[in-house]
């Protein structure tokens, strides 16, 4: 099942499948290891369109709401 990071459940894990943004966006988040095929875990979201906290390659990263909407994950 494919969902974006915002809709993904807290604690769920999967593989990054698509990046729904331009080249600059893919480059920016790719630098932190968020590339298609990377395994990713959602730790928690925040209310009122707050950031989503994820774990990729042993590192916790806070991703802004709008950016999180553009990261599509194939959930395990």
């Amino acid at each position: 099942m494919k969902v974006d990071l915002v809709c993904m459940e807290d604690g769920a894990a999967g593989l990054v499948s698509d990046l729904d943004g331009g080249e600059f966006f893919s480059e920016k988040i790719g630098n932190m290891g968020i590339v298609p095929g990377a395994s990713i875990k959602k730790i928690t979201g925040h209310f009122m369109r707050g950031p989503v906290l994820i774990k990729v390659k042993d590192t916790e990263i806070a991703v802004g709401y709008g950016m999180a909407k553009k990261i599509i994950v194939e959930v395990d």
Binding site: K28, I29, M32, P51, L53, T59, E60, I61, A62, V63, G64, Y65, G66, M67
Partner: peptide, 10 residues
Amino acid sequence: SPEIFVEIPP
């Protein structure tokens, strides 16, 4: 104003 995108240190 871009969004937050940052590594959270342990």
